[in-house]
Nucleic acid binder design. Structure first.
Lengths: 233, 233
DNA sequence: CAGTGGTCTAGACCACCCT
DNA sequence: GGGTGGTCTAGACCACTGT
């Protein structure tokens, strides 16, 4: 039942109840769950609260609503919409998820006489019980522009926040190429999937306001990541 | 302004207005749009309606809301797109190549009580001696908006030119999702490649100035197409 | 017809952010 | 403090679905 003294919003509590009922098998795939009117009585909240809870679950892809029929369970892949470079952390927070980074590689590398911090990370979100890894990021950060940036621990701190806060350099735009790939064994194990699902990789360069290259980046997106964009024609 | 006699829900009308204001550059990337309270006065609807409109656009990834701050545009504008929807013809001409279209399917189809022209084409460029096919396009064009558009031969005429010239409807913006796929046998034979190279597919919706859906589109890009973009962070 | 979700109104109180 | 979004209440009328 709902706890009105809890600081957790009622609609979140309600979502958890519904999610649980689905996961525990009380409501099975394709089956109808109680109608909005029934849930109003059942949980003693208004329809707005019910609809907010349901709308979010519809958005997650766990439920579908059909006018005149009811609310039905549709178990399928949960898709996320982050192709953004701009802030994995922001994205995760917005979704009420906890962002996680794991540093795989962190070393200084010299390429064509230039020193870079090479950073390889996996990034994901952690909810309640389990962690899902979403991307593998390879970054090269020029030490000439960010001297000493190799001291920071980027499993804890956001790369872009550090650039802005400590170096007063703001990532501004990026040139990217999108490439479809078949993940190799390492990729599969890092992103925890099995089949030969093709993935997306973005390869490109990130520039500051001044047009200086501040990062060369390569991001592999896992099978659960949605890559959405808007464009003018 | 909103039209209360229109059968279109107010929040949809509102979404179209906001989407348009973003696409037209009235609200720029990163900028704040009017607050919920301001929009209540501006459009004379309740906050619920505003919030519904905004919530959907947040979900589309066009806006973000920040408590205590406001509603902000997060348009990741694609500036250079080799793959553009805006006119395969234009693109080819710019490259001094001759564009070619081949119509594979051209028929009327009814989906959910709506009639559409279903158009499947392969498109490519022809230079000197040989032709290379670059994309496979699936389009659904609503006949309610383009009555009689099925009479035109789209191996000869550009779809968008026809829309503009004959129907005075201008494609304005698109919402797309990019998906990596493995081509099936048909795809391989149409795009003339052999190996199990993964390809890119764009699935989305094209809107006119008025926010009306004028095309549902699915484009498969062949192995020779570069998918590049520039974006602000 | 009764039951379902879809839309909308008119309020209320709160937590958060900035100055 | 004043403005912002976040949550919630208590209604209303409508369109759609099934029997």
């Amino acid at each position: 039942m709902l706890n009105r003294n809890d600081y957790t919003p009622l609609y979140v509590q309600l979502q958890n109840i519904i999610r649980n009922d689905i996961m525990s098998g009380k409501y099975k795939d394709g089956e109808m769950i109680p109608s909005e009117a029934q849930m109003m009585k059942l949980y003693d909240v208004t329809r707005t609260t019910i609809r907010k809870a349901v709308a979010d679950l519809v958005n997650e892809g766990l439920l579908v609503q059909a006018q005149g029929k009811g609310i039905f369970v549709t178990l399928r892949e949960v898709k996320h919409n982050i192709w953004n470079f701009s802030g994995f952390t922001d994205y995760a927070n917005k979704k009420h998820e906890t962002p996680i980074s794991h540093v795989i590689e962190h070393k200084i590398e010299t390429i064509d006489g230039e020193s870079y911090l090479k950073l390889v990370r996996t990034r994901g979100i952690q909810n309640a019980s389990n962690t899902s890894w979403l991307t593998i990021d390879h970054s090269l950060i020029p030490l000439a522009i960010f001297p000493g940036i190799d001291q920071y621990d980027f499993s804890q701190f956001s790369l872009y926040s550090t650039m802005m806060d400590k170096y007063k350099v703001r990532p501004h735009n990026a040139m990217l190429q999108i490439i479809p790939i078949i993940g190799d064994a390492t990729t599969k194990s890092l992103l925890q999937y099995e089949e030969d699902t093709p993935l997306l990789k973005a390869v490109g360069t990130v520039y500051s306001d001044d047009g200086v290259i501040i990062e060369k980046v390569e991001v592999i997106y896992g099978p659960n990541v949605d890559f959405k964009m808007a464009t003018t024609i």
